[in-house]
């Protein structure tokens, strides 16, 4: 039988590790989610311009980041960005240190990874726009830009939301891989704790519960957003 012992949770050192870990996980998830969403919107927007070289560039970006493991991307970001000569001198210690911290490298690589997926999500929302809607906008005299902002973008955003929810919840879980490049987030501290107290099973169960809780909150909020933005006939109708 499992003989679970959680008495170590009373230790203030473990408590503070867990709290810091959760806070860093939330920070990393929030920053990369927002950046990924923005990259997705901008990328999909750029694709509507139908500029051949820009399309090719975005296509390449999406393919590279979608078709490689995020862990590899993170290691790549960590080791290349920190050795590219981007060094600053710490004003306090006088020591030379990388300009980009492990956290920054993780945030950048996760943003790009999520952004590549988000571009596809928003692109599909724009491309499934019924021809009829576009024609109606044209017939009413909307310019191409006004049509995009007033009509197509709001509809496409609503259509893309369920796909975006998937991407962001996956991105949230992928933040755990930042532990490999020493970002002190939840997974990193979990390792610290079980290396210290050997209560591997207990620590893993606790971390699992924390992730389930946090990701559930995220998907709940996204579902609320979806319902708030819904309109009858598309997705979750409010009526």
């Amino acid at each position: 039988m499992l003989d679970l012992d959680y008495s170590w949770l009373a230790d203030p050192a473990y408590q503070s590790w867990l709290v810091v870990g959760v806070i860093n996980t939330l920070k990393l998830a929030a920053i990369s989610s927002i950046a990924a969403t923005l990259i997705g919107m901008l990328g999909a927007l750029a694709l509507t311009l139908r500029i051949a070289w820009l399309d090719a560039l975005i296509e390449l970006f999406v393919e590279v980041f979608r078709n490689t493991p995020p862990l590899l991307q993170m290691l790549f970001a960590y080791f290349t960005l920190s050795t590219l000569g981007l060094q600053v001198t710490d004003p306090d210690t006088g020591l030379s240190m990388p300009l980009l911290s492990a956290f920054a490298c993780a945030a950048i690589s996760l943003s790009l990874f999520g952004g590549a997926l988000a571009i596809e999500a928003f692109r599909s929302g724009i491309e499934t726009m019924p021809r009829a809607i576009i024609e109606a906008g044209q017939a009413l005299g909307y310019s191409r830009w006004a049509r995009f902002w007033r009509i197509e973008a709001p509809i496409a955003t609503r259509i893309s939301l369920p796909a975006l929810t998937n991407i962001l919840s996956n991105l949230f879980k992928t933040t755990s891989q930042a532990s490999v490049i020493t970002v002190p987030e939840l997974m990193y501290y979990a390792g610290q704790i079980y290396n210290d107290n050997f209560r591997t099973m207990e620590v893993m169960i606790l971390v699992l519960v924390i992730y389930v809780t946090l990701v559930s909150i995220l998907t709940y909020l996204m579902a609320r957003l979806e319902r708030w933005m819904a309109f009858p006939g598309y997705g979750k109708a409010a009526s």
């Binding site: 009829a132 809607i133 024609e135 109606a136 005299g141 009509i151 509809i155 609503r158 598309y234």
Partner: peptide
């Protein structure tokens, strides 16, 4: 031109949002 000429479509083409 489009301010002067309006159009009504078979599938209504209202903006759903």
């Amino acid at each position: 031109l489009r301010h002067q000429v309006a159009m009504v479509f078979q599938q209504y083409n209202l903006f759903p949002h």
